[in-house]
Simulated scan of single mutants.
Amino acid sequence: MPRRSYDQYCAVARALDAVGDRWTLLIVRELLGGSRRYTDLHADLPGVSTDMLASRLKDMERDDLVLRRRLAPPGAAFVYELTPRGHALLPALGALADWGAPALGERRPTDAVRAHWFAVPLLARLAHHFTDGTGGTNAGRVVGVVGIALDEGEFHVTLGADGPAYGDGPAERPDVRLRMDTATCADVAYDRLSLAEGIASGRIAVTLPEGMADGQVTA
């Protein structure tokens, strides 16, 4: 299928040529957490048809947003992952999440939800809370990996010199683990509740490794 274009000499139009189609940015959201198999992508994009997902992935390969590679044995499955150009869309997705937050409201009965869908808007909130610009927390202890546990699943956020990133599933050795319900996670993610307020009110339960005091994450 030939590439569709707005045929406008404008950076916004050029960007939308590549990512303006339905489902494209949500595929990017999924792959920001790491490489995924086709079946995993389809499972976490409820509502997308198999034909549409396959078509979008081909378009994204063509536009250097994703690449497809085969895992080494014994897995030998194909996975999709973002290219550096695809990863560069993270700030755009964060801005879109902030812009769309006022329209979110209460969860509707028909709304699907996955835990890691909160990861992108949470990145900036967690980075602000845990780092002071030099890699340490505001209480002086380095927090590099934050685990987030919801009833719907777990994901983790990595805070490093290259900027925050997230991964799907639990972290092997998180520096701190936060457990909360979906409503609380949404409030923190969309800046309606600070992390410190959530911890102080008991809406967020904190699990710390040995030798780390509560005050080091509540300040």
Rank of each mutant, 00 (worst) to 15 (best):
L31C: 10
V48K: 04
L53D: 12
A43E: 12
T184I: 04
L208R: 14
D51K: 15
L45D: 02
G86T: 00
L32R: 00
G167I: 04
G135V: 01
P91Y: 03
G163T: 01
E30N: 12
M1W: 09
R4W: 10
F130A: 10
V142S: 15
G33E: 03
A101R: 06
P91M: 01
D162L: 11
E81D: 13
R107Y: 03
W117Q: 09
G167V: 07
G153I: 05
V28Q: 02
Q216W: 10
A95G: 08
R14D: 15
P2F: 00
V146F: 01
A189L: 06
A171P: 02
D63A: 10
F155S: 04
G140A: 08
R177W: 10
T218M: 08
D98P: 04
R37V: 09
D63P: 02
A18S: 15
A15I: 13
L90A: 00
V145M: 08
A196D: 09
M1D: 11
D17G: 03
I199T: 06
G100P: 04
G215N: 06
A171I: 00
T184Y: 06
G198Y: 03
L65V: 05
G147L: 05
V206P: 02
L195H: 03
D181E: 08
A205Q: 15
V19P: 02
A161I: 12
Y190G: 04
R68C: 09
R56M: 07
R179C: 06
G86K: 00
D168K: 13
V157N: 09
T24D: 05
T50E: 15
R177F: 05
M180C: 07
T218A: 12
V157P: 09
P102E: 05
L26Y: 14
V176I: 06
A196P: 03
G202V: 07
F155C: 04
F130G: 07
